[in-house]
């Protein structure tokens, strides 16, 4: 599973093309007129190959979670295509499906949530929580059969099967996240969208959950879309990384190339801002100026230009395209080539 060994035969599992999600902002009045749009995700495109892990990084409000939720259709995209290669190698556009048409695809596309306390129904026991998709989608009506499968799943994620009668409040954060993972894997999905699966967990538990997710990926040939804000976790976990800023992908590259040679000024700033757990390597204390602007009225031209140290007049007026500057490294910056050379 090394980064460069992807052959051409590897199956393109998911192809996102021009995905856009705007949230209307309505006036307070009776008519609730639409007075603006929050451009949460704005023309985002990327691919995921079978068996790989694509990281989606960015700060809050960059649209990474919205992207993830559009792909699992917890949200309805405003426009764009989400082409998913079905089990029978037929491609369907998830973005265009109705809820009913989406139903059979839930088997293949599943989700892991950020907050393990909010994502388990406190009124249901573990058997019912994990077994729900087995019952509803899998049509496994027989309760004993279901509890057998749930027991397998619990063992798979490192929990004792005897605990399936327990309710979520009996488990710690890390254990709950294991239950969430077991639920997502119940129907043997092919794509798992993990929305910040470890950021709500304690440091010592994060590693346990990351290890589990890696192990399961290898055993079950899973494909992950891994949403995170923590760069070191992403570096550890992902094959390729897409960096998002204000609803747009600003850089997309293999993890190794990205971390060895980040090309977009925002990616560089983001990496420089991560405090390293080593007092001898003091972080570059020239932090990025300013803050992320509102997605309701993003800056003209390149969205990053008000904070960019390399800004030019062109940046203020024209949005750069996402271009392949180095092999496999796509950057949305007018000066990327120039800065890389200099």
């Amino acid at each position: 599973m090394t980064d460069n060994s992807r052959s051409n035969e590897q199956l393109l599992l998911l192809e996102v093309k021009g995905l856009t999600k705007f949230f209307p902002i309505r006036s307070k009045g009776l008519r609730r007129k639409v007075i603006g749009q929050a451009r949460a995700v704005d023309d985002v495109s990327f691919n995921i190959f079978e068996g790989e892990t694509l990281g989606l990084v960015g700060e809050s409000g960059c649209g990474k979670t919205t992207t993830a939720r559009c792909i699992v259709r917890a949200l309805d995209p405003t426009s764009g295509e989400i082409l998913f290669s079905h089990s029978d190698r037929e491609t369907v556009d998830i973005a265009a499906l109705s809820d009913r048409e989406m139903f059979p695809l839930r088997r293949d596309v599943q989700m892991i949530f950020q907050d393990p306390y909010a994502s388990l129904n406190p009124r249901m026991n573990i058997l019912d929580i994990i077994g729900e998709s087995l019952l509803v989608i899998g049509g496994m009506k027989d309760r004993t059969k279901r509890s057998k499968r749930v027991a397998e799943l619990l063992k798979l994620v490192g929990l004792r099967p005897e605990y399936m009668q327990r309710f979520p409040h009996a488990f710690s954060g890390g254990q709950r996240q294991r239950i969430v993972i077991a639920r997502a894997l119940a129907l043997k999905p092919r794509l798992v969208v993990a929305d910040e699966p470890v950021s709500a967990l304690d440091v010592s538990v994060q590693a346990q959950v990351l290890n589990l997710m890696l192990k399961l990926q290898q055993e079950l040939n899973l494909t992950y879309l891994f949403v995170a804000h923590d760069l070191s976790v992403v570096k550890h976990f992902c094959d390729r990384v897409a960096v998002m800023y204000l609803g747009k992908i600003v850089e997309l590259a293999l993890t190794t190339s990205l971390f060895e040679g980040p090309m977009h000024p925002y990616t560089k700033a983001l990496m420089g801002a991560v405090p390293e757990a080593d007092p001898r390597r003091k972080a570059a204390m020239v932090p990025l100026i300013g803050e992320v602007p509102s997605p309701v009225s993003p800056p003209s031209g390149c969205h990053f230009h008000p904070r960019c140290p390399h800004v030019t007049e062109l940046c203020k007026t024209t949005m750069p395209a996402l271009e392949e500057i180095r092999l496999g490294q796509f950057v949305r910056c007018h000066r990327a080539a120039e800065l890389a050379a200099g």
Binding site: S204, A207, Q208, N211, K235, H236, F237, T256, F259
Partner: peptide
């Protein structure tokens, strides 16, 4: 040891508690 850093080998099991 359990926090992944820029220096830990990627996509390998992390030591955990």
């Amino acid at each position: 040891a359990s926090i992944p850093t820029i220096h830990t080998p990627a996509r390998e099991e992390l030591p955990t508690i």
